[in-house]
Nucleic acid binder design. Structure first.
Lengths: 326, 326
DNA sequence: TTGTAGGCGTTATCAA
DNA sequence: TTGATAACGCCTACAA
């Protein structure tokens, strides 16, 4: 550390000054800070974290990054983490358990102080590798979704109530023939939505129409609706578990000369950007991504201070957004 | 290191074994590996990088993450980096020079071995803080865009040729009244597109119609087209510098009863997902994001081995995607 | 208020 | 083929 000799003090004093210790004379401190500035000194984080046994880094794992929902989550989380003077290590599992396992190891190697895991959207039959985090004493939790069988808390949207309210709203609009495009119900977040639909429809003593789709995406939505049109098995409303599917439904309907919403109503879910960008503004349910990020972060920070979360499940309120597609 | 005593060997031998050194007896190695597995040993990266002076980490800076273009770039880059057994530190500048400056410091502190900078989309009047990287000897380059005045190479799409080819294609379709929605020409990547438009139109001796917009986004596109309709200053084709704007134009036209493409043609740029998701499939120009990521990465890897890039500018070919909006 | 010295977990250089 | 030991750069007692 050449600043030491340049300033004519010992290396220990420099360290104290750099870290703003009150022990060091303010004159000396000023001199050292000025010098270190001039010499472009930048401390070595590896050495620091080695001796302090703290990295001031959090880790977050997401299934994919080129997905507006996840990337927005990252954006929000990133700003919370930075506002507390922590760094955020972002890792992408690519919907792959093996990858996720590797990432966990990586995080441990790098001494992150806490991990937020956003599970991928497929069944993960054996996520027990996640327990490695507990073994080495790194606090962690799930956000947006969770894996069954891991003892950790999770922060997710109250999807069931969200969908329930949406369908209730449809019913209040006097719709009675309401179909739901549902994916694999073994995926928790899809199951929750489906439950909301079911509950609302049953309460109103309406017939439930669940159309199973193989994948909850745009293309699949298009082809399913194409089929419905061919078969004449149309419904007055198509409720979709996400906005991309709603968009697919709308585009397919319109391309077949069926007008939305006058002949056929459609709703989405998530309120990702496309909602406002569609040819007809889509009625949808907004997930409060920022709030999920914030809550996860606060819980994690709390766990660092030894505060165990007081529940296993934290549900974040959703918001019904009424637009023009129904 | 408790593995050492458990295995009855010295700590140095354990280190060798863990790192698969051929110096150590294969029996011993096997025993040590087995033990370290059982004991759940995970090496401390901070200590490692401290002594090796290598972090096996690259850094990438992007302006925002909840943007399909950037997040796709990250996705591609991430997989290249991981395939070479490096880690990728992803940082978000949030379109903020001060933030970008802090990130650079952070990367230096963390000893990353190379940095890829994706500049933000506004003028950066004094990006000289980036030169700190050079001072400490960390190789870096620009991708997707670049800042003037920094001596580094950049890997970007050949946007000018891309736009030129698109407009030539329009001309070959016998369109003659072609307007261009252009943003701030002091932004390099917008300027390049505009130049392409100009060149094609001039070569064909057509009148050029450049409509300046304040921001190159969806809302602005909508309001500009709304104005055109009001003023009766319509054109036969609206060429947009990106797909979101094209979507805005199309939706506004259709909502005003103007059919696309029969009355009015529209084109986009970038080929982000929306292109195929619009009510009418948008003719656009694809940027080869994967190729940009790959080339940037290869150059950076090369620089680690002391290979100076042989040029300052690397242009990646774009691809014209003919669809239904014209 | 400042200097000295030990140690964080690992690798690398010798010597054995 | 292995063991001992000195770094790596920084922080932190404790001593001065």
């Amino acid at each position: 550390m050449d600043i030491a000799e340049a300033a004519g003090v010992s290396i220990g004093t420099v360290s104290l000054a750099i870290n703003d210790s009150p022990l060091v004379n303010s004159e000396t401190k000023k001199k050292i800070k000025k010098l270190s500035q001039e010499m472009g000194y930048i401390p070595n984080e590896a050495a620091r974290s080695l001796v302090r046994k703290k990295s001031r880094q959090f880790g977050v794992i997401i299934p994919e990054i080129s997905n507006y929902f996840y990337s927005t989550f990252i954006k929000e989380l990133n700003s919370f983490v930075h506002s507390m003077n922590y760094g955020l290590t972002i890792s992408i599992s690519d919907n792959n358990p093996a990858q996720e396992c590797m990432i966990i190891d990586e995080m441990i190697r790098n001494n992150v102080e806490g991990v937020i895991i956003v599970p991928f959207n497929e069944r993960n039959s054996s996520p027990e590798y996640i327990n490695k985090l507990r073994k080495v004493g790194i606090p962690f939790l799930f956000a947006v979704d969770y894996y069954d069988g891991i003892d950790a808390c999770h922060v997710i949207s109250d999807l069931e109530t969200g969908m329930y309210n949406l369908v209730k709203y449809l019913i209040s609009l006097k719709y009675t023939d309401i179909a739901y495009l549902s994916g694999d119900p073994s995926v928790i977040t899809l199951k929750m939505r489906e439950n909301g639909y079911r509950r609302a429809v049953e309460e109103a003593s309406l017939q439930s129409h669940i159309i199973r789709v193989r994948a909850v995406d745009y293309t699949e939505a298009c082809s399913v609706i194409q089929d419905c049109i061919r078969n004449g098995s149309m419904h007055r409303v198509f409720v979709c578990p996400n906005d991309m599917m709603a968009l697919g439904v709308i585009n397919t309907l319109r391309n077949n000369g069926i007008s939305v919403p006058s002949e056929c109503a459609v709703t989405g879910f998530d309120n990702v950007i496309f909602s406002s960008v569609s040819s007809v503004a889509i009625t949808t349910v907004e997930q409060n991504i920022k709030r999920i990020a914030e809550k996860s972060f606060r819980l994690l920070i709390g766990m660092l201070d030894g505060n165990k979360p007081d529940r296993k499940e934290y549900l974040i309120k959703t918001r019904l957004i009424k637009r023009d597609s129904c």
